[in-house]
Design a protein around this nucleic acid. Structure first.
Lengths: 225, 225
DNA sequence: ATATATATACCGACCGGATGGTATGTAGGT
DNA sequence: ACCTACATACCATCCGGTCGGTATATATAT
């Protein structure tokens, strides 16, 4: 159950009504925005998809922009944090963890289909030049992500998992850019083959981020544990 | 057949009226689409920008979509081919050439500003899921680009400029994805610092694409010439 | 328990405006 | 006289957003 407050779990049927419509609106808006982009997203289709009326929408959100912000702040941000930021938080070996995260993303795209891309990538691309509110939100999330991965790489350097002659923040930036572009390209090509190509090159790129003496050092680490 | 003759470049003023209007429309449409995206682009603003009327537009193009296709097929495709594909066609050392192309792109973005991104990237992102005509056009151009860079890398392998244990098509795909993502990220961050970070990592990535004995081999090649 | 009062949650018809597209008219070269 | 190359006025449609009104849940009083 999607509990609202962690304290007052509220009686199942009475409290949730407001929350249920709000969640339905957010979900429907996410789908619509994901499919059509924010500007082309139609409020009529959103309320239809949520099974409520326009009055309900404007009872919960002052305007379309606020709805868009809410969609970004909640479902989209949650997904990125959970999928890309938290796993690297305490990863011992960042390269191995990035490899795993990348592979999981690939698998998820294979399942869910590849035509619509990633909501974050789409919004970033569409709304950054158009609306400053969206831009700052997206920028903040991407900066968080970037710093998080850079920190992970830096720790990896200290612990001998990552070669020391690379710039962590630069490499982290490159990786995120690569993901952004991969999703976009795959969407255009509608080809899993392209996605596999990118993964192949990305993995070999990750390997080349290891220290030169990694193979022997790896064995040593293995015996220590 | 009519105009666009590669020989008679036509003094600006003597160019047939028809072509001038058409070019003005294409140029204005490119600007508008670049700034607002295709779907949000307004035909009224386009004709105003071109200094002609709506009747002129619909005399040259049957509808908005056809105008969009024309913008893609001519100015956008031309730019990509000239900037990214032709230089690699006969490059002796692909890595050095990619390095140069990347640096020139970076400089161009510094000059022209970074807020609007690249028309190809924008269109690819926006229109691929929405319109099949756009999608196939973009896909064809990207495929051309990808194959062109992959061929260059393969030749580089044969001539000892590129390490042999990488997959040319995979690496080419990764590079294009990286550019796609870099442009998008930079647009969102509105930060030249981010662009510099990506360039730093990209250059070091290119270096790691050299054969292990590159430093010595490079000296040898140097003396040969 | 029942009736009343009040605030919340929601409905759906409607509005001004902008959009892509069309129908009709006209200027100008040949 | 005729066809190309445009201009102007106009249309149907959809958009985001508003607003008067209704259902529903809860608090209070009886």
């Amino acid at each position: 159950m999607s509990a609202g407050s962690p304290f007052f779990s509220a009686t199942e049927s009475s409290a949730p009504r407001r929350d249920r419509t709000r969640q339905a609106l957010l979900q429907s808006a996410l789908t619509e925005i994901h499919g059509a982009g924010f500007q082309a997203a139609s409020l009529s289709r959103i309320v239809a998809g949520a099974g409520v009326s326009k009055g309900a929408l404007y009872h919960h959100f002052p305007n379309k922009l606020a709805l868009g912000y809410a969609v970004f702040d909640q479902p989209i941000t949650d997904y990125i944090v959970k999928t890309f930021i938290e796993p690297l938080q305490n990863a011992e070996d960042p390269i191995e963890c990035m490899h795993r995260v990348g592979t999981m993303e690939r698998d998820r795209m294979l399942e869910q289909g590849v035509t619509l891309g990633c909501p974050l990538v789409n919004l970033s691309q569409e709304m950054s030049p158009v609306d400053e509110g969206f831009r700052t939100r997206i920028d903040a999330l991407l900066t968080l992500w970037r710093n998080n991965w850079a920190d992970a790489l830096r720790r990896g350097q200290e612990n001998g998992y990552v070669r020391s002659d690379i710039d962590p923040i630069a490499e982290a930036t490159l990786m995120i850019a690569t993901r952004q572009g991969s999703v976009a390209l795959t969407k255009t090509a509608q080809s899993l083959n392209l996605l596999e190509n990118v993964m192949t090159a990305f993995i070999s790129y990750l390997d080349r981020l290891r220290p030169d003496d990694w193979t022997s050092r790896k064995a040593k680490i293995g015996t220590e544990s």
